[in-house]
């Protein structure tokens, strides 16, 4: 019995130790591209990057506080792009806001009208405020596959 308790304690210790965060935490597949595309460049020439896998580096200036399903990565000029991940597959903790990060995924865009229509249809439900500052007729974002976040 004592031996069983010893092994159980050791197992719990390993479980706890494995949950400790490192200096850089990897989410999803992390990042594979060596070179980051500046956020300002993505927003200035979205057509060139549409459908392509891109990496962005910058500061996490906002994030989903309920599901952890998106973060916004901004450059030092305030240009921000949202990195949206699949709910539950990757969960960004809200404590990551204010930390530097690299994120990767497919650059995408959806018509603003479609988003507004969806929100209108869901009127009455609670929505988190969108911190992104999309301009024009399209809302651009990155369908994120992974990220590295500094702690």
């Amino acid at each position: 019995m004592k031996r069983a308790i010893l092994f159980l304690s050791l197992g719990l210790f390993i479980l706890t130790a494995s949950a400790q965060a490192a200096d850089v935490t990897k989410y999803g597949q992390g990042v594979s591209l060596d070179k980051a595309t500046p956020v300002a460049e993505l927003l200035a020439h979205p057509g060139e990057y549409m459908g392509k896998t891109v990496r962005v580096d910058g500061l996490i200036t906002a994030g989903c506080k309920k599901r952890g399903c998106w973060i916004q990565i901004s450059d030092d000029k305030g240009n921000g792009v949202r990195v949206k991940v699949e709910d539950g597959v990757i969960v960004f903790p809200p404590t990551s806001i204010g930390h530097n990060a690299s994120a990767e995924g497919v650059f995408s865009g959806i018509p603003r009208a479609a988003v507004e229509k969806k929100h209108k249809e869901q009127e009455g439900e609670k929505h988190e405020a969108c911190d992104a500052k999309p301009s024009g007729e399209m809302i651009y974002f990155i369908q994120g596959t992974g990220a590295l976040i500094e702690s």
């Binding site: 901004s74 305030g78 500052k133």
Partner: peptide, 21 residues
């Protein structure tokens, strides 16, 4: 000491502290 302090635009400045923005 903040984690970061950045201008979000000409009209907004943000300071990121531990668990606080």
């Amino acid at each position: 000491r903040p984690k970061a302090a950045v201008p979000m635009s000409e009209k907004e400045f943000r300071i990121f502290l531990k668990d606080r923005t």
